[in-house]
């Protein structure tokens, strides 16, 4: 059982649009003729990569020195592993399967994601799991796990799902979030939860919150035990230990049904 492997040919540089390159599309006999993009112009896949056939449900992409946008876009099943860094829109509109990025990911990863698992071993850029420009909602299901930190606007207008971050998030983490759960072990910069409607920000470090968040004191919340047990199987350390948490309700300007939770002792 070996994975189908795509290896970037020597001498290729620029931005490669890998949209449509998925485990299931590469088992076709004419997979090498699949059209992808190089710096905005269409080219056949075989011009950029050497293809070693393998299992239909597993694909490994080996690429260094180029920017790979749209990795795993609209993926529905199987497993795609990128050995290297991803550009923007990694895992955009995912509907299932597992996308593993061994390096960093650019902006807008997991936007419009509905199901599946996106795992990023490095750090992620801005607008992770957020709404794309002009869209009403961001990520609407599935799980994103980032071993490093993430940029600004994590989960902006996120609708559903779970994002686990072991590092630190940038500004406006969980801003305008509609529902879902963000767990960020390293805490986040200012404007956390700005415009939060529902949903939970589970932070390892207490953030600076605006005046439209009210502290609700400490409570013992059994669901945190459930969440941590599940999260630890995906990305250990993303959810803080214990079930006692200090809770803020907010954003009161948006109904106050969202929450920010930090460890009770933090």
């Amino acid at each position: 059982m070996t994975a189908t492997t795509l290896t970037l040919r020597a001498g290729i540089a620029g931005t490669v649009d890998l949209g449509g390159v998925l485990p299931e599309t590469l088992v076709r006999a004419d997979a090498g003729r699949l059209v992808v993009g190089l710096d905005g112009r269409p080219v056949e896949l075989a011009e950029l990569f050497t293809l070693r056939p393998g299992d239909a449900d597993s694909l490994v992409v080996e690429a260094e020195g180029v920017r790979l946008d749209n990795v795993g876009r609209a993926m529905t099943a199987g497993r795609l592993r990128l050995e290297g860094h991803a550009g923007d829109y990694a895992g955009e509109a995912m509907r299932g399967g597992e996308l593993l990025i061994a390096g960093d990911a650019g902006d807008f990863a997991a936007c419009a994601m509905r199901a599946g698992l996106l795992r990023i071993d490095g750090r992620a850029g801005d607008w992770l799991a957020a709404a794309r420009t002009g869209e009403r909602a961001g990520m609407a299901g599935g799980v994103v796990a980032v071993a490093g930190g993430v940029g600004d606007r994590l989960g902006d207008r996120m609708r559903r799902g779970l994002v686990l971050v072991r590092g630190r998030a940038g500004r406006a983490c969980g801003a305008r979030m509609l529902a879902g759960t963000l767990a960020v072990a390293g805490g986040c910069d200012d404007l956390a939860g700005f415009g939060l409607r529902r949903g939970s920000l589970v932070l390892g470090v207490a953030p600076e919150l605006g005046a439209t968040f009210n502290e609700a004191g400490v409570a013992d919340l059994p669901w945190l035990g459930l969440l941590r047990r599940y999260a630890d199987a995906i990305l250990p350390g993303a959810v803080f230990a214990g079930t006692r948490a200090r809770r803020w309700q907010g954003d009161l300007a948006q109904g106050g049904k969202g929450e920010v939770l930090v460890p009770a002792c933090g």
Partner: peptide
């Protein structure tokens, strides 16, 4: 109205 839904591992829970 203060109840919250959480979906974990595909299963829905109510808080």
């Amino acid at each position: 109205g203060w109840q919250m839904s959480k979906v974990i591992a595909g299963r829905r829970y109510w808080r």
